[in-house]
Design a binder for these strands. Structure first.
Lengths: 270, 270
DNA sequence: CGATGTGTTGACCGGGTTCAAACAATGTGG
DNA sequence: CCACATTGTTTGAACCCGGTCAACACATCG
């Protein structure tokens, strides 16, 4: 496939004609951020606090959903934001010519519908993948509450800010990693997301079909299946008996090293 | 490459086990939104209004940048948001293992640095690709101004909301289109972006190298070059004399139909 | 039981990567 | 001014990863 990673190695991105002049905020960058266990539990607690705050201030309408339910639909009139209290959801983009693309997933504490604020209509579908509960918050009411309660606006902005990075990360994954590594990286991401919900990460059942994973990662379901088989062969994951959707991940970090190893064949950046 | 579009045709995404139950806001979706000429000039005016508003309320620090300058750097401490007044910029993600990925571009009226709000540090590099000017706005000051001036917050939220869609769109492009179509779609996007800045769209000079385009689109620079040559051969674009960076696009809509034609070989969705 | 949806695996082949060579544009120093 | 290096672009040829097609296994369900 597109090994742009190696391409970038042979022809690195020109940072500029005369070299960088340095950022305005010149602090040392630490790009290697990865959530530690303490941070994860910390984030878990923050999510609980946020949900409690919203519940107290706005008494949002709770809505129970089941697998396949649409929370909001692309093109539909924007009115509410939604917060995931439980379950998980996929975000699906649809193009005018019928292509549909899974562009992300949402878990407990994530918000749905931010893309509707600017356009006045949602830009994508949000679809439940399991039984769960979302809280509907009319945007106008949220704004009014922000005027009353000063602690609310920072929470909202942080949530919107968090929407930006994931799509960029998966774009990078799709553009720079070969198929096997993309699947491994996806499993790592999934385990990390579960951990942030306080769920166990060493063993879980994927509620996604191979086709959905493949669509999200830009490959066919056959390639996903082959990649998973290979990962199982290498003991990076293990399938539980009874169905190939129960996955065990003995060591999540091993998946990360596998991803990096896929780029190792071209170790020298220059 | 990965024709997941056709894969989706043979194995369409399951919307759910029992079918969709309908969205909360059940208005008719119009997914086929594309900016008309009136909308473009309208948006152009809105951008001007926004810049004027911010200038009057906050007197932001103006900063002239040249090609290659870093506006902010991934990992750097978050403090300011930036608004593009002129020039254009690329957003580059960098992974811990050295991969770097162009994940988007910014033009006049776009904001930079939203991804830093949640983390407290920027998640990516913002790099000028030409001489231009950005306005630095300390986030704390912006929040204070929002408290004074009620019209500011909706503008800010709309800007943040607009950050969500582009990355998703390019993810879809990368995942569902073959190389030729991706390049065509990129040119269409670029022309559209220039139009929204009030610049001419029928003839312009790409300030990007083939390597940068390829990185953004998930392919090698050679493939970009070949795709451009093919588009020129088909008279969808034309190269100006003196260098292969001056591009003429006689009819932008022809590019759109070309993209759709790349999916035509599999016309029946079922 | 058959029907349907999902997952696995194999064989083939084609689009895109890789490697290589050549050219154009630009700058640099003697 | 030319020689030379550098960077970006184009084009060709060979290879290979991943898409395509097909067959089969397995589960659930009416």
């Amino acid at each position: 496939m597109l090994n742009t990673a190696t391409a970038a190695a042979t022809a690195p991105l020109p940072v500029g004609s005369r070299g960088a002049r340095g950022p305005v905020d010149a602090t040392l960058p630490d790009r290697t951020r990865r959530a530690s266990r303490a941070e994860v539990s910390d984030e878990c607690r923050q999510v609980g606090d946020t949900l409690r705050l919203l519940n107290d201030l706005l008494a949002p309408q709770r809505r129970v959903v089941h697998a396949g339910d649409l929370v909001h639909q692309g093109g539909g009139r924007f009115g509410c934001l939604y917060i995931v209290n439980s379950g998980f959801f996929k975000i699906v983009n649809q193009s005018a010519d019928g292509r549909e693309q899974v562009v992300g997933f949402k878990f407990r504490g994530d918000w749905l519908g931010f893309d509707g604020i600017a356009r006045g209509s949602y830009a994508c579908d949000a679809i439940a993948m399991d039984t769960g509960e979302v809280w509907a918050i009319p945007y106008a009411e949220l704004m009014a509450a922000c005027a009353r309660e000063a602690t609310l606006l920072p929470v909202l902005h942080a949530a919107m800010s968090r929407e930006i990075a994931p799509a960029r990360d998966s774009l990078m994954s799709v553009c720079t990693l070969p198929a096997d590594a993309r699947v491994a990286d996806f499993l790592r991401y999934w385990a990390e997301s579960l951990a942030q919900c306080g769920l166990r990460t060493d063993h879980f059942t994927l509620r996604l079909t191979r086709a959905e994973i493949g669509n999200y990662l830009g490959m066919t379901l056959e390639t996903v299946s082959r990649a998973l088989s290979k990962l199982a062969r290498d003991n990076l994951i293990a399938f539980h008996e009874k169905g190939r959707r129960d996955v065990s991940i003995p060591d999540v970090r091993a998946l990360s090293t596998f991803v990096e190893r896929c780029l190792a064949p071209v170790p020298t950046l220059q």
